[in-house]
Design a protein around this nucleic acid. Sequence first.
DNA 1: CAGCATCCACATAGATACTG
DNA 2: CAGTATCTATGTGGATGCTG
Lengths: 128, 128
Amino acid sequence: MKRESDHICFCPLEGVIDIISKKWALLIVNALGNRERLRFNGLMEDLGGISPKTLSDTLKELQAEGLIKRESFAEIPPRVEYSLTRDGVELRKAIMPLLKWAATREHVNKGCASTYRGVPAHRIKEKR
Amino acid sequence: MKRESDHICFCPLEGVIDIISKKWALLIVNALGNRERLRFNGLMEDLGGISPKTLSDTLKELQAEGLIKRESFAEIPPRVEYSLTRDGVELRKAIMPLLKWAATREHVNKGCASTYRGVPAHRIKEKR
DNA sequence: CAGCATCCACATAGATACTG
DNA sequence: CAGTATCTATGTGGATGCTG
């Protein structure tokens, strides 16, 4: 008994998967969503444990997708700032329900220490 | 200026990514959401081009995650039916906003022929 | 029919070292 | 500071053939 509301075209899913399947992509989008703008090393710290190569690669893809904006300042030392585009902000909103769903599942609280309470959409990183 | 509503713990993101990053996982969840229950080969057709190995692997993972249910009937020829669990249905709902977001992006209509209009949450597969 | 076994190809991501 | 260059490890998925 399906209704119109269920009739969503999943064609775009292919493209979406290309983006979200990248392990760090959503984390980056989120980090930028929290901080408004971040520099390369700022992202490195925020994400905890990402390699510069992976970060660089992912940033380029997100740029190509039009989800983040890169602003480079001709200074010494060089400064580059990343921020979400309007589309990026929309994506971040779109994944919230997914997050909430994930948060209702059992294996959630484990590992998410109270230390991190109040840290907006953080991510713990014990794995180092 | 962040408000409480933005303070979502992204810890679970790690787990979520493990699920959704699997290229076929969301497609399977969706297919089962559309059809209620499907058999192995039914899924093969619906998904268009997935290999039995990959389907088998993914189904097992989704089972392990408690997102789909597997029912085997001792008949000849053997019959096995897959369907979404409650959690699976919730996941499907949770990704809808993501889908809608994807659907608003430019490169959407391209490839999504009118032939498929009315096919609930389908996916085209030219690539064969 | 519903898979499993095997082998293979490719994409992603980490470590490390180095550069404009 | 903000990356790039390599090299490697792992995972994810496809092809093919076989089985209960």
